[in-house]
Design a protein around this nucleic acid. Structure first.
Lengths: 137, 137
DNA sequence: TATATATTTATAATAATTCTAAAACTATTT
DNA sequence: AAATAGTTTTAGAATTATTATAAATATATA
């Protein structure tokens, strides 16, 4: 398993703090999803887990991802080019650039793209993000 | 059928100009999708067609939407809250506000939300759009 | 340790979309 | 106008993404 941004103990504590039982499968998924993963879809999480964890079912992967989204540890993204959900462990405001050819997603910080809303008050904006599409050279 | 923004003749011409044979089914779908529809999904297009056109199959609806996207008459949108494709007959740069509660999508013009990119040159941006999420009052 | 509760699993079910191949339609050639 | 070639539509099968189910397993609690 690759070097992770969080120790097992830390992941356990994060899960507990959110009221989630830190089972072996959940910890394994989190090791990938909260650290090394870069906008993975469910298949990628499953593939990683199959290589780095003795046994996990696809149902548990889906279930765990849904739980992580519910408690706000990750976010679900969907883009026009694919019908698969993509997950993002960066839950603060930021943006995405998607390469037309490769479909690779790049995180774009709020510093790099400025958004100014002049919307009327009846639009109460809670969050926003910019999707940029183009060519990465 | 509701009052449409394009006559049948005009739709025929639009399709022909894109190299698409203007069949009865395609014209019917276009009457809705290019005019009255407001961010419909495939089900909504099918439901409209079932009421306003003698007979059309779901496969033809999918097929027609795909063709319209290919030639650039409409765009596909996908948002985190749903795994269904949503179609937009506004193909120029604009933005979307989605109401958390109702999932209704509001078009937001470029005048209302300003986007300024400071991205480095290796990101060649071809198009972009802002997704705003919140509460519409 | 026994028991209650929660989680995981394999599999079935559902839902969105695409594929297939025959039938129906449209355009073109005669 | 009939024959032919090419295109589109259709019903239904296939595929893919995701959720539901219910039995087996694991964990927490008394």
């Amino acid at each position: 398993m690759k070097n992770s941004c969080l120790t097992t103990k830390e992941i356990e504590n994060v899960l507990k703090s959110k009221g989630i039982q830190p089972t072996a499968q959940r910890i394994a998924v989190c090791k990938y999803v909260l650290c090394d993963a870069d906008h993975p879809n469910v298949d990628e999480v499953k593939a990683w887990a199959d290589e780095n964890f003795p046994k996990i079912s696809l149902a548990t992967v889906y279930n765990t991802m849904n739980i992580l989204v519910e408690v706000g540890l990750i976010k679900t993204l969907r883009f026009p080019h694919s019908d698969k959900a993509i997950f993002d462990n960066n839950t603060s405001i930021h943006h995405h650039f998607i390469d037309e050819k490769t479909s690779k997603i790049y995180d774009i910080s709020s510093d790099e793209v400025e958004v100014k809303s002049k919307l009327s008050n009846d639009f109460e904006v809670k969050e926003y993000s910019v999707l940029l599409v183009g060519n990465k050279v």
